[in-house]
Design a protein around this nucleic acid. Sequence first.
DNA 1: ACCGCAAAGTGGTTCAGCCACTTGGCCAGT
DNA 2: ACTGGCCAAGTGGCTGAACCACTTTGCGGT
Lengths: 239, 239
Amino acid sequence: MSDALRPMARPRLYEQVLERLREYVADAGLRAGDKLPAERELAQRLGVSRASIKQAIVVLEVQGAVEVRHGGGTYLVRDTLDVEPVDKLVERRRRLPDVLEAREALETKLAELAAERRTRQDLDALEAALAYMREEIDAGERGVEGDRRFHAAVTAAAHSSLLAEFMRSIADQITESRTESLRQPGRPGRSLGQHQSIFDAIDLGDPRKAAAAMRRHLRTVAKVRLLAWNPEAPEDPPG
Amino acid sequence: MSDALRPMARPRLYEQVLERLREYVADAGLRAGDKLPAERELAQRLGVSRASIKQAIVVLEVQGAVEVRHGGGTYLVRDTLDVEPVDKLVERRRRLPDVLEAREALETKLAELAAERRTRQDLDALEAALAYMREEIDAGERGVEGDRRFHAAVTAAAHSSLLAEFMRSIADQITESRTESLRQPGRPGRSLGQHQSIFDAIDLGDPRKAAAAMRRHLRTVAKVRLLAWNPEAPEDPPG
DNA sequence: ACCGCAAAGTGGTTCAGCCACTTGGCCAGT
DNA sequence: ACTGGCCAAGTGGCTGAACCACTTTGCGGT
C-alpha cells in the first residue's frame, strides 16, 4: 500500500469552529472568567448550525478549557482556549528527528527491559512477529506489518506501562517513518536480520546486547529516513 | 469554605452516552479495528438523539480513541474507549519503578543530545546549576533545587521538544524521587560529583561519555530509592 | 471473470422547536 | 428597607426530520 494513497485529511466543521473560537478569544483579549458569546449568536456569526457550535464547545469542555452553565452561559477557565501541552502530544504532528530521538531513547530501554523480563509468551509473540515479517517479505511485500508487530512485541515484553504509553503517544509518527524506511531497496531483508539479532539477545536474556542491537537497528532506520527525505544530501545512498 | 456548597454536579447526556459506549465496548469484547454500531442505531438503542451520540463520538475522536470515516463507519483505535493514558499522566500517580525506567531512558538520551548540541548559553546554565547546588550543600541543605535545575538544564541543552515534554509529564514523580534520594546521608555530595562528571562530558562534547555518566548517576538514584522504599523485596511489584 | 454503476448504508450538517435552568427586575408582604 | 414570590428574557440541553457527501455492496452487462 502506498502511503500517498491513504485517506486524505477530512476537515470536520467543529474543528474549524474550534480554530475560530481560539482566534476570537485571543484577538478579543478574553481572560479567565469571561463569558463566551451565546451559542445562537456564535452560530449566526460563524454561519454554521448550533449543533456544530455545540460539538466544538463539548470538546473545549472535555479539555477543561471552558465551563458551561446550563442557562447561564459558557465561561473561560483560563486566559486561552489552547489545550494543555501534554494533551497536544496526541494530536500535534511532530518533527521527525524529534520522534526518532525519542524512539531511540525509549526503545533501547525497552529492549533492555525485555531481555530481563520476557516471559515464555513474550518470546512466542516475538517469534511470531519475526515469522510474519519473513512471510511478508517472501511474498514480495515490504514487511510493514511484521515490523510493527515485532516492535509492539518488544514493547509488551518490557512490561513497563509508562514507557509503553510514551511509545503509544508517538505511534502514528513511527508508522510514518517505518513506511518510509522499508520502501528502500533491500531494507526489509536487512531489517529482518536486525530484528533477529534483537530477538536473540532478548531470548538469551542479555540486556546490554539487546539494547545495543536495538540501537543499531534504529540508527539504520534513522539514517535511511534522512536520505529518503533529502535526496540531494551530500551522503551516499545505501548499497 | 465548606465543600458541600460548591456547585452541584450537572450530568450531561453525552457523558452518560460515553459511559454506556465504554461499557458496551468492554462487554462486547470489541478490539482495535472493530466497528462501532451506526450512529442511528446507537441513538435508537440508547433512546437519545443522534446529536447527543455525535457529541460523545466527537469526544472520543478528540481523545484519539476512535476513528470516524465519513460514510464508512466509526472504528476503535485501541481495545478500549478509555481515555488516552498520556492525558492522564498528570493526574494519575505512577508506580515509581516505571518512572525511574522512563527517566533513565529519556535522560541518557538527553545527555547524549546535550553533548552534541549544547550552546554557550546551555553550558552557562549547567555551570550555574552546579554552582547553585554546591552552595546549597555548603549551607547544609540537601541540594534539591540545585539538582532540579541541573537536570532541567540538561533537558534544555538537548534541544528536543518531544523528549522535553515527556520529561515534563513525569516531572512531579521525579520530584518525589529526588527528595527521597537526597535525604540519604552523604548523597548530596556524591550527586554533585556525578553532576560534575555529566557536565564535563557535555562540555567536552562527548555524547557517549555523557550518556554513560548520566546512566551511572540515575542508577545510583534508583538504587537508593529502591532501598528507601522496600528494603526486602528485590522483585518487581505486581502489575 | 471482470467492470461499471446504482442502491443501500453511514457519517456530516442543518433547521426549527421545545424543554430546563439562570438571571434580573418587579411587586407584595413583613 | 428587607425578604420572598413571581414572571419574563436569555441561554444551554436535547430532539426529530431532513438533506447532503462519501463508502460499501452487489447486481447486471460485457
